[in-house]
Lab assay of single mutants.
Amino acid sequence: NKASVVANQLIPINTALTLIMMKAEVVTPMGIPAEEIPKLVGMQVNRAVPLGTTLMPDMVKNYE
């Protein structure tokens, strides 16, 4: 099973992601793959992301 990106803390709306906000975890359903973490740094979330939430592509602005 591949790990996904999971919020390590509450991430407020429009916050630019940093490494300490994210962790890799095997979850179902899968979200953004953990190997994308370096690419996510500096990208903004378009909603508040609660602690423990799996990051999905539609939660990150301009994620492709």
Rank of each mutant, 00 (worst) to 15 (best):
A16T: 06
I20D: 09
V49M: 06
L55N: 00
E25C: 03
N8S: 06
A24Q: 06
E35R: 09
V49S: 02
M30R: 07
I11A: 01
Y63D: 06
S4R: 03
T18I: 04
G52M: 06
Y63P: 03
E35M: 10
N46V: 12
N1L: 14
P33Y: 13
E36K: 08
Q44R: 09
I20S: 13
M56K: 14
R47I: 12
L51I: 09
V27A: 14
T53C: 03
A34F: 15
M22Q: 02
P38W: 13
Q9L: 13
L40A: 01
S4M: 04
N1F: 07
P38A: 15
P33D: 12
L51D: 12
E64G: 13
G42F: 04
P38I: 15
V49R: 04
N1A: 13
R47S: 08
V27W: 03
P12M: 07
K23A: 11
K23M: 13
G52R: 10
M43I: 08
A34T: 08
I13C: 03
P57M: 15
M21I: 07
K39S: 05
V41D: 13
M21R: 09
N8M: 08
L40I: 05
T18D: 07
M56D: 07
I20F: 06
M21K: 12
P50H: 10
A16D: 04
Q44V: 13
P38C: 02
E25H: 10
A48G: 07
V6C: 03
P50A: 08
N1E: 04
V26W: 11
E64S: 06
I20E: 13
V6N: 03
M43D: 06
E36Y: 08
E64Q: 10
M56G: 07
P38S: 15
K61V: 14
K23C: 02
K2L: 07
V49W: 02
T53A: 05
E25S: 11
N46W: 11
T53E: 08
I37L: 12
T15L: 09
P38V: 05
L17M: 09
M43C: 02
A48N: 08
D58W: 08
S4D: 00
V27N: 05
M21C: 02
K61A: 13
L40C: 03
A3F: 03
P12N: 12
V41P: 03
G31D: 00
A3S: 12
K39L: 15
R47N: 15
E25R: 06
A16Y: 10
P50M: 11
N46I: 06
R47E: 15
E64V: 09
N14T: 07
N46T: 09
M56R: 10
N14I: 06
I11G: 00
K61N: 06
I13N: 13
R47K: 09
G31E: 02
Q9E: 14
P12V: 08
A24Y: 07
N62G: 10
L10F: 10
I37Y: 05
V49P: 01
V6E: 02
V27F: 03
A16I: 07
T53G: 12
